[in-house]
């Protein structure tokens, strides 16, 4: 059960060094713009820009390819199914009985797939260059309650632990004769003993963790201090101001002037 648990790739590029709050705010604004757009050239440009920025940040090509592989089934589904339900356009490309596929519908399906891909890669600029601790710290500084941030950190820390527990229990029970059918509801039902044992182990861990947290004063009614805090540098403020100015200008053009709302 070897798998990556996040998309972060360590590095020292300008994008890695940028304050995680700035990256989150700008990525959210960019994602909102991409969501509003339907224009094929504009979405293509957004996707190309996201890839260019990832390349400049020396983000590994293997991880970019991995995201494309994960998205591929959804993108193919959109491109294939969209023209079947959309009859807009005069140029008929294919007519098979009740199935009529128009050129415009094909382009709209392609634009929608590009929008989903552009959205994912825009957010990858934030996720791929921000380590998990900074990510949670930035969310807490932006208003997420500390206890939820702590729960999230514990969750991220325990992912490999619980994955190992599940695998160990699964192998141990199969070594003792548990028969796992290859697929279907029968496999799910056969997995019940594994799930029970793995969950009880995980819950015992959480009980010990709760005692540890209580012993260290978590939940005590005092003002908390932090060892490593986030601090905005002048370059972060500059990036935030420039990004927000560009983002809001594009948002105004999109909402008022109709930029990117048409297909072409």
């Amino acid at each position: 059960m070897s798998a990556r648990y996040d998309l972060y790739a360590p590095g020292n590029s300008w994008l890695h060094r940028l304050d995680p709050r700035v990256k989150l705010i700008l990525a959210t604004l960019a994602a909102l713009l991409v969501l509003l757009w339907s224009s094929l050239p504009l979405l293509l440009a957004a996707l190309a820009l996201a890839h260019l920025l990832l390349m400049l940040a020396r983000y590994p090509r293997g991880l970019v390819a991995g995201v494309w592989r994960a998205l591929a089934p959804l993108l193919i589904l959109i491109v294939v199914l969209w023209p079947i339900f959309d009859r807009r356009g005069e140029l008929i490309v294919l007519a098979l009985g009740p199935l009529i596929v128009t050129g415009e519908a094909l382009l709209r399906g392609l634009a929608t797939a590009l929008r989903i891909a552009a959205l994912s890669f825009t957010l990858l600029l934030w996720l791929g260059t921000t380590d998990q601790r900074s990510l949670v710290r930035s969310l807490v500084r932006l208003g997420l309650p500390f206890s939820l941030g702590m729960a999230m950190t514990i969750g991220l820390r325990f992912i490999p632990t619980f994955a190992n527990v599940f695998q160990t229990v699964s192998e141990a029970l199969q070594a003792r004769g548990l028969d796992l059918p290859p697929r279907g509801l029968r496999r799910l039902r056969a997995m019940l003993p594994i799930l029970v044992a793995a969950l009880v182990t995980a819950l015992r861990m959480s009980e010990q963790l709760g005692w540890t947290l209580a012993a260290r004063g978590v939940g005590a009614p005092v003002r908390r201090t932090t060892l490593r805090d986030l601090a905005m540098r002048p370059v972060d403020w500059l990036a935030l101001a420039a990004g927000l100015a560009a983002g809001f200008a594009l948002l105004w053009l999109t909402l008022v002037e109709g930029l990117g709302r048409a297909l072409r």
Partner: peptide
Amino acid sequence: QQGRAAPVRSGLSPRVIALAGVMIAV
């Protein structure tokens, strides 16, 4: 970096924080 004092914003007990964290992982 220098430390920062932050106000406590939520009243989740350590037990619930630990439980929620482990269940997020599960």
